[in-house]
Amino acid sequence: MKNKKRLLSQSLLHVVSLVLLIIILFPLLWMVSSSLKTPKELFSNGINLLPKQITLENYRFVLEKYDFVQWLLNSIVTTFGIFILQVFISLMGAFALNYYRTRWNRIMFYFVLITMVIPFQVTMIPNYILISNMGLVDTQIAVILPYAANATTFFFIYQQVRSIPKSYYEVARIEGAHSFWVFQHVMCGLCKGSIAAVSILTIIDAWNLYFWPLLVLSSPKSRTLTIALKQFADYEVGDNWGPFMATASLASLPVVLAYTFFRRHIIDAFVSSGIKG
């Protein structure tokens, strides 16, 4: 009796999850499946996720006709730049606030954390003016610089670093270790897993940046993938939905891969850091 009830509730759970999954994954599946369809099938009024005739024509079109490789390179450069700057600065901040004990710790913590509340659009105009005064408009550096400061990344890393027992630092201090050594071997060493997780999340976010690059990148040569897709959608899409979907699928592929490889880390890092009070 009890077994039967359990079986029933379990299968109900699976059914609900699967239905929700189909709804949630539908746009993604649609994107991939339309990139594999022929133009004729693409515009037939049906909803079939499985193309009748799979074609890679759209992908060939994109790789031949557009600057796909250039866009990809631009995306990689900006993503990498943002990742290095953002994670490194957050690590240094988290280290200073945990390793040293001064009366400024609390104030500096809030100095950083408060900026989490401010929407990006608030700082957008002055940032634009700043970047253009530096003469950086239309370069990848312009995209990277403002993202050096990201309080969410900082907060996540800070939470992780805080869970390291203070006695480790003390031992290092008594042994006369230099703070660089402690930074590298104690803090980064102990938080390796969670740093990996936060790095992946940072990389995914940086890859997907849309609005700021749209403002500062103007020439076709410097576009990142997301921006190129936007231009594509605005000016050329007409009957090129197939190639568009192919580009969109290609642009999403790296993040999906990165996520699938590191998903354990990500979930584990959330569990271990916990959002603890």
Binding site: L20, L21, L25, Y210, K230, M245, V255
Partner: peptide
């Protein structure tokens, strides 16, 4: 767990066009 998280990692600008 993995699949429910997927929309999160896609670029909002791209999926918006879909």
């Amino acid at each position: 767990k993995t699949l429910f998280f997927i929309p999160n990692i896609l670029a909002l600008s791209i999926v918006c066009m879909v």
